[in-house]
Design a protein around this nucleic acid. Sequence first.
DNA 1: TATGAATGAGTCTTCATTCAT
DNA 2: GATGAATGAAGACTCATTCAT
Lengths: 183, 183, 183, 183
Amino acid sequence: MNAPRDPEGRKRQIARAAYELLPEVGVGGLTHRLVAARAEVPLGATTYYYKTLDDLIAAGLAHATAVLLDGLAAWAEVIAAGADLADTLADLTADYLRDRPRILVETELYLAAAHRPGLRPMARAWIDGLTGILTAHVSPDAARAAVVFIDGAVVYALICDRPIDTATLRESLAALLGAHRTA
Amino acid sequence: MNAPRDPEGRKRQIARAAYELLPEVGVGGLTHRLVAARAEVPLGATTYYYKTLDDLIAAGLAHATAVLLDGLAAWAEVIAAGADLADTLADLTADYLRDRPRILVETELYLAAAHRPGLRPMARAWIDGLTGILTAHVSPDAARAAVVFIDGAVVYALICDRPIDTATLRESLAALLGAHRTA
Amino acid sequence: MNAPRDPEGRKRQIARAAYELLPEVGVGGLTHRLVAARAEVPLGATTYYYKTLDDLIAAGLAHATAVLLDGLAAWAEVIAAGADLADTLADLTADYLRDRPRILVETELYLAAAHRPGLRPMARAWIDGLTGILTAHVSPDAARAAVVFIDGAVVYALICDRPIDTATLRESLAALLGAHRTA
Amino acid sequence: MNAPRDPEGRKRQIARAAYELLPEVGVGGLTHRLVAARAEVPLGATTYYYKTLDDLIAAGLAHATAVLLDGLAAWAEVIAAGADLADTLADLTADYLRDRPRILVETELYLAAAHRPGLRPMARAWIDGLTGILTAHVSPDAARAAVVFIDGAVVYALICDRPIDTATLRESLAALLGAHRTA
DNA sequence: TATGAATGAGTCTTCATTCAT
DNA sequence: GATGAATGAAGACTCATTCAT
């Protein structure tokens, strides 16, 4: 599908395929063959562009991180737009929680990073990014508390089918953002 | 260590070895061989007692769940003892977050359950258990919000080396437990 | 199901289970476990009564042979009753060909006997038995030719779904029984 | 013997080894390892070219079928040459029955096809092929009867050490080819 | 006598990785 | 540069068989 004479594109295409597969098969289920098939490139291409399986996994997770950060940029805009912070954040979070592949891949990233320190900067990018955005409006502690709560809601959504509803999110986030104010 | 001809003990021994390995190698890294070596039983014993690798993983996670619930019973006692709820909970959580193998295995359980619905009841046991304990003191929504926050703190601790400090935990938990009061 | 205190019956029960399984899984698919499950006896019973898997297979095939010879006795009666030989034989054969498990197990027996000379007497029992019955009415050569044809019809039925029809059987058998007359 | 980097040849070589082993160990006794050793290729090569054991077995049986059909082509020529049909066919059959590996593998094919419908077309190739050849000279029913008889002689030869002698074959085949004439 | 536990050999199969082309 | 072939290690799993009880 992609001309062999576009190395950059090929490499991205492979990383993207790895990213797509992550929520489906998990980090432990990723293989060169699976990625090659999904990316519709020959098997050799996957090892050519990513020397080892770990590299390939890292590439998939890096792509995931990029997507997460893209999403974060959107959050930043909405939040900057100004309405009530807890409200806005609750809405954004509720939307996010409905995107199961995304929260799955985020959690895969976290757990992979827990086992391999090399991946931690990527995992922290989401946390730090969102914390940074919120810090424009509340204290760092409050911001971090909100982020922690949101990540708790993510894992909650993974196993409880029915995620926390928006109203509850709003109330909790309001409480957290309101606390620490004096800190 | 465990004499043959003690099927019950043997089976538990194997499950325990699987449990021990989970934080070290993750669900995806668990193999019959690894478990057999750790449990110091012949390879065949692992498949004799647990027909498939999935069974073996489930056994390890079930053991983990039992340990988590044990821990929860201790929490229940301390909480019942009566001091300020947010204080107590913050202390318990802070201790818990320092037990890296434990929070690793909890997260492994969550992610595994996310992929395999059959494991979800085990994953929910912790959440529901703690929620139940807290519901004796606060509204269900507040209880659940606190639990969500604690689980967020767990994944935070996994990748940020330095967990949330006790004071921040206390303040956040107090805010969450205090909110929802009217709900 | 069978009282442990009826060794003879137990042994027969196991052999019978092996026999039942043969058309389903073939000689190569027979295992102690499968037989134990089918016979509803503990695993140990299968190895207790039949030292080795080969013994167990032989027992199943011996049971099959006994069944085949029983069937042959019925044939002998019908044939002795007197109607036209080719007619009678064609009818009997047509019925037989419709009993797929039976012709499957007969062929399993043949092939197993082809590989293991020790089983050949059992395989020959059917051929020799039927030949003997027919020899009362036609020359040995004609009898044997008819038997050979019938066994050809058996393997034909195995793979062609639709067996040779009775009319064709009758005509062929009549021709074979009529030939060799001078021999 | 066969250089790597000749995929076609390699694949054929493996199929051929499987084919050679079939009369020796039977379908049930065929393993990747056995085939790899016989073909003098590494173990991985067998699974590289034939994804599953079933594929490997099918490949061996397909090779067998090809050999059978080759033999049939020779029969066609001899038969076309013209001498008395029953005579010719009896001679060809007698020769065939002396080739034990060949008749073993033919029977393995039949039985395997009995269990797995996917293999039936291969099993029928021989039957249909020979029937077709004979149909040029006699009625379809007569042709098929002769083929059935020949296959009966095959299984007979497998277990009776001494196959039917040529004279008897001739007489039986003559009778069968002569019958059905009016049909 | 009878049986469930136990095990080690052996099977299929998958895959990361290497390499010739 | 790119790729399909190639392979050896490793894994899950099955089972005949043995043996303590």
